[in-house]
Design a protein around this nucleic acid. Structure first.
Lengths: 351, 351
DNA sequence: TGTTAGCACTCCAACTCCCTGAGTGCTAAG
DNA sequence: CTTAGCACTCAGGGAGTTGGAGTGCTAACA
């Protein structure tokens, strides 16, 4: 497996990605940087085919990369260029659209930006809420017998829900209940906020329980909401405009988000590239999915992925993905680290 | 235009909807309830073609309804069966999934249910928030220099947003600001909450303004959110699995939601059926969109629509749409009407 | 006057056949 | 090890052919 063979494999991949047509020996031979005749290229290609990196749709057609071929190209051959500063700045702007980057908006922006940049579908699975802690619970009256429960987590997620009670609460009851909730829930991890815990809470409250049940229920629902993996999907339309992909398979794939979540949550480090049909549950033919992770406090708290045709400019897409996952890691870590290091906040307080 | 011709037109529409193939005279003649020979049917079909209700893809093919043909069928000929009680119950259950029906969840459920039932795309444009009034504004501290603004409307919409201030507020400042907001914003229509009004508010606040600016900004953003038509879309995938429709056109259509909003907001009463290509901006070829309205307090506060192939079982879909729009009207009116009629709430108050 | 059977006609869709050209593998010479 | 030359393969496209479904028209019939 000499240098030239690798160069030829790379050329086949790149030409095929560019044109979508099987690539012949002549085209490769004429490419700058090859410098051997078509016959020589043919010999090498035949070898590459034997090794399983190339294949022919039919005898008299050019060569097309196999999945192994793509994999070899991605892992060993290609050298993605570093992003120039101007590009980084552009990406930062895309992330920062609509003001400061809070958790959800950041994820949303990252997803749409990735979809836009790559002209593929982009997906982010964010399970950071699961790792965060309830920082505030409020109950706010909002009309006759209607109360809004507000849940804020250390991760910056804010959820609310309206609950209808059987009776109105007196101010006294309300503040008592609020205090009680604050005491028992603030500081508790969202993941711990199970049915049992809430049942305990309810039991402890005793007599009031009958009245407060819908509120307790509401809190539970909000926490379930938080625990759920937030899956943000964008750019489906790009998949549908892609010639190489079967529309029906796309539909089927998008419908079964659980599968997708499973694939995204699988733990690994660095970048992983998966191919449709490549065994397992990622089933869009001729497609590929590139997944990267982001972290908070050293813990893996989410994945972001790009789904597109197998015929994808990996050298372009992978740097984007790497940059975004690093950026998200940086930004959410900032957020989380602020409170402990916050002393100047006291000095600056203004009366 | 005799009875029999209408019957034949109906038969052509229904057969074509069923099979997707042009319908020949023989097929029609053999249908129960026709009772004339194929030759007679042919004569009538020729007549219907002259009148513009049918057309032939080519000379030796059967007939296919034209847009006028569909329209005549829908408006004058077909008689959708009333929904049986069992069906109504089923629909009610679909609407009520996941607990009681609050505004957003109700709309969400209605959209997915419609998409599911019709195997088409369903869309709801809800502009009721525009007509509602701010019933509560709260500012809640949520960490160092972070405050959550909570906006509740009479329509039951609840929105929140985290804002970061330059400094922390004292309790005094916070309650002063809250009171101020309550006094000046509660009872104000969401539609009136313009930039100018907020500027006035800011001006009136004078010195505090520098500190509070992000909060005021946050409120403004929330109200903009509310004023925006909430467009809920579901079942796109059904469109993509539909043979008759061009995938690219679907993508283009889904991308340009403003067009869709324009079509949905157009005011009319009852049910309206639009056809793709039928002049104007609804541009998916061979598609149709059926739109119905829902109301609150006599005002039209939203539309719900079904988008599918022109080859659609209108007699089945339209009753669903009518039922849902009526149901939504009923449910949101209930919500809104309760407060004034609320006297027993006082008696039942429990200390 | 309206309905029906019969018949000639039309034309799409599917099929075969053929040809072209791109690309290959192999061989023999450099 | 590389290259030129050559015979071979095969998908894709165009032309010609056929079958069948469906029509319009006409003439007979109720």
């Amino acid at each position: 497996m000499n240098e030239r063979k690798l160069k030829i494999l790379a050329a086949v991949v790149e030409e095929y990605v560019r044109t979508g047509e099987p690539v012949g020996s002549k085209v490769i031979a004429n490419l700058p940087g090859i410098g051997v005749s078509a016959a020589t290229v043919r010999n090498d290609m035949a070898m590459l085919e034997q090794l399983g990196f190339l294949e022919q749709p039919h005898t008299s057609a050019g060569r097309v990369p196999t999945i192994s071929g793509y994999r070899l190209y991605i892992e060993k051959i290609m050298t993605p260029p570093a992003l120039p500063d101007s590009e980084r700045e552009r990406l930062d702007n895309m992330l920062a659209e609509q003001g400061p980057m809070t958790g959800e908006l950041l994820i949303q922006n990252a997803t749409t930006a990735l979809a836009e940049l790559t002209q593929c579908a982009a997906v982010v699975s964010d399970f950071s809420p699961k790792f965060s802690v309830i920082s505030k619970v409020e109950v706010i009256p909002a009309g006759k017998r209607v109360y809004v429960v507000l849940l804020i987590t250390s991760g910056g997620a804010i959820k609310n829900k309206a609950c209808r009670l059987e009776f109105d609460l007196t101010n006294e009851q309300l503040s008592m209940f609020s205090d009680y909730l604050a005491e028992h829930l603030e500081g508790v991890s969202v993941a711990e906020l199970s049915d049992e815990r809430m049942a305990d809470l309810a039991a402890a409250m005793g007599a009031y329980m009958m009245t407060m049940a819908p509120l307790v229920q509401g809190i539970l629902e909000l926490s379930r909401d938080l625990q759920q993996h937030a899956l943000t999907f964008s750019g489906e339309k790009n998949l549908f405009s892609c010639e190489d992909l079967d529309k029906m398979e796309i539909v089927r794939f998008i419908e079964h988000k659980e599968e997708l979540v499973r694939l995204l949550d699988d733990s690994f480090s660095g970048i992983r590239v998966m191919f449709g049909e490549d065994g397992g549950s990622f089933v869009i033919g001729n497609s590929s999915m590139i997944v990267s992770k982001f972290h908070k406090g050293g813990k893996n708290v989410g994945s972001l992925g790009v789904i597109g045709p197998m015929r994808l400019d990996y050298a372009k897409v992978i740097p984007y993905l790497e940059y975004f996952s690093q950026k998200i890691t940086d930004l959410i870590s900032e957020e989380g680290e602020e409170p402990p290091a916050d002393t100047q906040g006291e000095e600056n307080r203004k009366g």
